[in-house]
Design a protein around this nucleic acid. Structure first.
Lengths: 210, 210
DNA sequence: GGCGAAGTAGGCCCTTAGGGCAACTCGACG
DNA sequence: CGTCGAGTTGCCCTAAGGGCCTACTTCGCC
């Protein structure tokens, strides 16, 4: 089952910090989930749940930056906010370069935390929306047969049916059939919509010299 | 005249630092230009020259972060690398959040500086390419008459000539003429190409209910 | 061996796209 | 007042898109 609400995942090996941040965020109306172990957080990670991670930089088991890398490697786009007691510049810069939303020093001010979480929520919503969209397009694309897909690539390249027929070695009528079925499956009614849909899905138009 | 080569703009009120960095970068084959005054750098700023800025964080005249803001406000996309003697975490995070390419501590290691400049060059080339492209599209779009532009918006919305004619209050033949002239002016030969071009230029398709 | 999906192909018919040519209106500019 | 650009429209033409029906082949699966 997929959870709908935005959740803040707290990862810190100090239970006192977990408790304090939880209280702060709950009071602001955020749902929270605490992990005192980075590995536990990693294995419990469910990308389908909207949310952000608030991660302690210094943890005995697994360093915050390494946790970030682990998330990135498994394709997660979970926005990350770092919390740390004693951070240095190069670490914070590395974290930010790797895409962290923010990097906060303990003790963290309420407003700083809230504004970071708000930004994280926006980032999450945006990437989630994009992903949903490309997934729905991908689902529809997967229903295309080989021939239909082939025709699609020529159509979005702006080729005429006659030219497509010559390129794939068949007659115009057959291309029309594939084309019609392909448009129907993708749920578009104009070439304009088809092009936009294909672009979002990252489909390369068939290249034809000339 | 527009300069072609990639230039690193150094801004530091310490002449010794300027000299050292200049030597380092020149040896690596980079063209450099030094400014001991942030304001001087600002007023000499020419967005048409490809390059990145390497800025000292602490300057008596104008703070590095403020200089960054000033650049952003005037629409500059000049990639920025910060250099600093004594930086703190919150400053570095602010700089990175504002889009800095890197934030390096003095004394800076050759490799760190080179890798930052390399990344900045890539960022610059990318944004420059995008800008050039959208400019060239914009130039062509500007040559369209009001009517042609109107027809364009309906065409990329996937409307038929007949429907467009009804929407703009004319007959099909007239739409065909505008459409043909518009396609010729924009230098595209298919609706597919037209849609991609319009999307790059950020043109909103005319919305028609149904 | 039958059955369905995918691909192919033909015919018929109607709608759309789009170009060529000619002509007209209207407002701006000199 | 004449000219020019923009917009307009009609007639005529070819080419292209696309719906609908039918029909054949191939391939894999039950």
């Amino acid at each position: 089952m997929r959870e709908a609400g935005f959740t803040t995942f707290l990862v810190d090996d100090d239970p006192a910090v977990l408790k304090a941040i939880t209280r702060l965020l709950n009071a602001a109306g955020y749902k929270t989930k605490s992990f005192s172990s980075p590995r536990e957080f990693l294995s419990a990670h469910d990308p389908s749940i909207p949310g952000c991670a608030i991660i302690d930089l210094v943890m005995s088991e697994l360093d915050g930056l390494h946790l970030q890398q682990a998330l990135i490697e498994r394709g997660s786009e979970r926005p990350i906010i770092f919390l740390t007691g004693k951070g240095d510049v190069s670490t914070s810069v590395r974290a930010m370069k790797a895409g962290a939303v923010d990097f906060l020093m303990k003790p963290v001010k309420r407003e700083a935390l809230f504004s970071a979480v708000l930004r994280a929520a926006k980032v999450d919503a945006l990437s989630r929306q994009k992903r949903d969209e490309s997934k729905s397009i991908g689902d529809r694309l997967a229903t295309l047969t080989h021939r239909e897909r082939e025709v699609l690539e020529y159509v979005i390249a702006g080729r005429l049916n006659k030219q497509i027929a010559a390129s794939i070695g068949t007659v115009e009528k057959t291309v029309k059939v594939h084309r019609g079925r392909m448009m129907a499956k993708l749920g578009v009614r104009s070439v304009a919509d088809l092009v936009r849909l294909a672009d979002k899905a990252g489909i390369t138009p068939a290249y034809v010299s000339g």
